[in-house]
């Protein structure tokens, strides 16, 4: 298909000591981790742990109070969200934010215009990405007329269309049926294998986390409490105590 994402291993993410405070609440506290180019990492943790805030700081939507973020060794400090997008970071929003009056093709074409000025080319590319994500037959529909899981796919499509080196996925599999989750997992696996796309995903669906991730990061009350292989992390007593509970691993 035409929507092949830029090949080659790139998209290494380094997060150094970032913190974010909202008034008296420390949402993210001195968090450091890195994602090697071409790897898939999951960021998990209970609601309110600071996962989305961490994404916002990586994508430039919120300024960190301390620390910085590097993409392939280059600091993203001081860049606006659109510049960080063009530098190779694609992101989705946990609460979907489609362009409601635009068709799906147009929604996704907005993303593709990050690397081309040719609207026809952007539309063609958008169609390819929509096919890839199983929205091919809804290309001319508007976001209001598709289901929530489809709108989550649309978020992914728009982010993918920017040709990211690093893709940030914020709970895109929440609310999907297990078969849909498996299909989505397969898509990300294939993208990762074929193009070396680096992925950091926030996810509660453990089925997806276990199937996809090379490593798992666990946030709790804004602090990073674990960073390791999936099978290690899921045995970590602190992780189990704070968040997971045995039933999560059914």
């Amino acid at each position: 298909m035409s929507a092949s994402v830029a090949a080659g291993s790139a998209g290494a993410l380094t997060v150094r000591n970032i913190s974010k405070r909202f008034g008296g609440l420390v949402a993210v506290s001195e968090v450091s981790f890195s994602v090697a180019a071409g790897e898939i990492h999951a960021l998990i943790g209970p609601n309110g742990a600071g996962k989305t805030t961490t994404f916002n700081m990586i994508a430039g939507a919120q300024l960190p109070d301390t620390g910085d973020v590097l993409l392939d060794g280059v600091s993203l400090a001081g860049l606006r969200p659109d510049q960080i997008c063009r530098a190779g970071v694609g992101r989705t929003f946990q609460i979907v934010r489609p362009f409601n009056e635009l068709t799906l093709v147009e929604n996704v074409a907005v993303g593709a215009l990050a690397w081309t000025d040719d609207l026809a080319e952007a539309r063609d590319y958008a169609r390819g990405v929509l096919e890839l994500l199983g929205l091919g037959d809804k290309k001319e529909a508007r976001p209001s007329s598709i289901t929530l899981p489809d709108r989550k796919c649309l978020e992914v499509a728009r982010a993918l269309a920017t040709k990211p080196k690093l893709l940030l996925l914020d709970e895109v599999m929440a609310g999907l049926r297990p078969t849909e989750t498996d299909r989505m997992v397969a898509i990300f696996k294939k993208l990762n294998a074929d193009t070396g796309l680096t992925i950091l995903l926030i996810e509660h669906v453990m089925r997806a986390v276990m199937a996809l991730s090379h490593r798992v990061l666990v946030l709790n009350y804004g602090r990073l409490i674990a960073d390791g292989k999936p099978e290690e992390v899921t045995r970590d007593p602190e992780v189990l105590a704070c968040y997971l509970g045995a039933e999560a691993f059914d």
């Binding site: 659109d82 063009r86 934010r97 409601n100 907005v110 993303g111 920017t162």
Partner: peptide, 12 residues
């Protein structure tokens, strides 16, 4: 439609 989403998609 949504300026934050636009910005995240590369729109200056």
């Amino acid at each position: 439609e949504d300026q934050e989403a636009a910005e995240a998609s590369g729109v200056p």
